[in-house]
Every structure is written in C-alpha cells, then in structure tokens.
Computed example of a mutant assay.
Amino acid sequence: MKQKSVGHKLGLYLKRTWTLYLMMALPLAFAIVFRYLPMTNISMAFKDYNMFKGVWDSPWSDPLYRWFEEAFTSKDFWNAFRNTLMLNSLDLLFGFPMPIILALLLNELVFRRYKKFTQTVLYLPHFLSWIIVSGIAKQLLAPRTGVVNVLLAEIGADPINFLTENFLYVITYIVLGVWKEMGWNTIIYLAAITGINPELYEAAEVDGASRLRKIWHITLPGIRSTIVVLLIMNLGRILGSEIDRPFAMMNSMVMKVADVISTYVYRVGIRGFQFSLTAAVGLFQSVICVIFLLTANAVAKKFGERGIW
C-alpha cells in the first residue's frame, strides 16, 4: 500500500508539473549536445590527430603523454602560463571589488534620475567588443599621436609608451578590463541588495546608525553569500582566458607579458596545425581550473558559507 501511495503521489506530481519538465527538455538537450558530447573529443590530447582520419581513427600517441611533455618542456608554454596566472590574478584583485563598491555607492544615491543615468553610463562599456576597446585605447594612448601623449607634450612631459612597455602594458590591460566590466557586474550586487529587508535599515536609522554603519552592518552582510559565490566562480576561471582581449591588445614589443595560454594555443597549436597539442594544453588548463574551483568552494564551506553546491 505504501509503494502504491508513493507511486500515486508521484503520478499526481508529474501530472501537475509535466509542462515544466517539458520546458527543461530543450536546454537539457542543448547542454548534452553542445557541452557534454564534445568532451568525448578530449581523447585528441592522447592521439596523433590527423584531420583526414578524424579523432577516433587517429592513432594513439607513443607515449600517451607525448603532447603534455612537449607543452611542459616549452619555455613559451610556461611563459604563457605565468602571464595567464598573473593577469587573471590582477584582474581578480582589482576588478572583483569594484562592482561591489559601485553597487554600494549606487544604492546610496537618492536622486533616481541621476542614479539611472549613472548606471547606464557604467553599463555601456560591457557591450563594446574588445576589438573596439583596443582600437580606442590605441588611438588614445599612441606614443606620438594619441590624445593622452599629445596633452602630455603640451605641458612639456615626455611621451609614455602605455602599450609597448611591459609594466605599463600590464597596468593598461588591467585598467581597461576593470573599466569595461565593472558596471555590468554591479547588476548582480544591486539585485542582491534589493533582497535585503528594508526594516533593518529603518531600525538602524532609529538607533542613530550612520550610512557607513548601515553599509558595514546591514548591506555587506546581506550580500555576503552573493560575494562568496561570485568569488568562487572567479577563482574557478583563474587560469582561463578568452582570446579576444589579449589578442586584440598584444603586440610584438610586449610578448613577454602579453602572451597567455589562449594566444599560445592559437599561435602554436591552431596556426601550427598541432591540434593534439592544443587539446593537451586545454585539458591541463581545465583540470587546474577545476582544482581551484573545488578548493575555493571547500574553503568557503569551512568558513560557514554555503558555497556553490
């Protein structure tokens, strides 16, 4: 009778909610076809891939770790590894707190029209591609004809090579990244702030709390879980890098600090037709990112946070 009762309840539940499961079928199919099935080609990292034979008919490498060994013995790979870790760490250090600070400032603005205008201005850079951003940067920061250096020349200062000196290139790279994305990421924190009970602010105001006290004791604790989740996700991408940003901004003068794993894979693997090498490097990169993700999540749970699962 108990099993029949459980089955009856399950049948009633599915009868009420079958449309929801049907709606989930399409995104689930999309994830399986375009996310999980391509993972089967990970075997390319252990094969001597031949594009005419395909992944499955290509012979296995001898030894199996051949392409990993080739990558790990390459100075260019370790230079790209170091640069990826350095640039992403600096992005995290300077880029992660900025949306939080902006969200706190925007939340304190009283005039709604000014607040909306400010939000719009801060969001707009996100919709520009890195090709456009790098083109603007090159026009503004060019050593002789750039607006910034022309203004410096007007006051008698020497021109600054923002994009051709290693140290200045790194600073420019990080500043442009923070400027482009900080406004867009504030949306998440502003949404989290709206979920805080307004009665807490009213009680704090009655007790005579200042704005800074309300931010420190109410707003920040109220969005702490959101901050932790986003921090864990960012740490999971600490060794990942999309190709558009570094590829658009790099030049031959700063290859020592500008070449990252994505550009290394494109230059050495794809342009050099070493597809097995690109698969090996990509697999190594993914494994390191997963390790960072699991470690960050475990540390967050150890400190009493919920983590991402």
Rank of each mutant, 00 (worst) to 15 (best):
L106E: 03
I196T: 07
E108P: 01
D158G: 04
R267W: 01
N166Y: 00
N297M: 05
A204E: 08
A29W: 03
A191T: 12
M86H: 02
L122I: 05
W67S: 13
W216C: 03
W56E: 08
D62S: 12
M233N: 10
I291V: 15
Y173H: 08
F127K: 09
A137C: 08
V133S: 08
L109S: 08
M24I: 02
L294W: 00
G240R: 09
N88E: 02
R211P: 04
Y21R: 10
Y264D: 10
R16P: 00
V257P: 11
A45C: 02
L92N: 05
F68S: 13
I193N: 08
F94A: 02
Y169L: 09
F162N: 11
Y114K: 10
Y21E: 08
T172N: 08
I131Y: 12
L93G: 07
L277W: 09
Y264M: 08
N83R: 12
P27E: 10
L283W: 04
A279D: 06
F303K: 14
K214H: 00
D62C: 01
K9M: 10
I243N: 10
K15Q: 12
T17P: 00
T295D: 03
V33S: 03
K4Y: 05
D57M: 15
A103R: 12
V281L: 06
I238L: 15
L105F: 13
E69Y: 04
R245Q: 15
S225W: 00
A258H: 04
A29I: 13
G54K: 04
P38E: 10
W216P: 00
M250I: 03
H217C: 06
M182Y: 12
T226F: 02
I223Q: 13
K138D: 01
V6H: 11
K116E: 12
Y49Q: 07
G95V: 10
K75W: 09
A191D: 07
S74F: 06
D76A: 15
M255P: 06
S252W: 00
T219A: 00
F117C: 06
V133F: 02
W179H: 02
W67Y: 15
E205F: 00
A142S: 15
D62L: 07
N88P: 03
W56T: 13
L12V: 11
I174H: 02
C289I: 05
L124G: 03
N297E: 06
L128F: 14
I227Q: 12
P99S: 02
L176N: 13
S210M: 04
L151F: 12
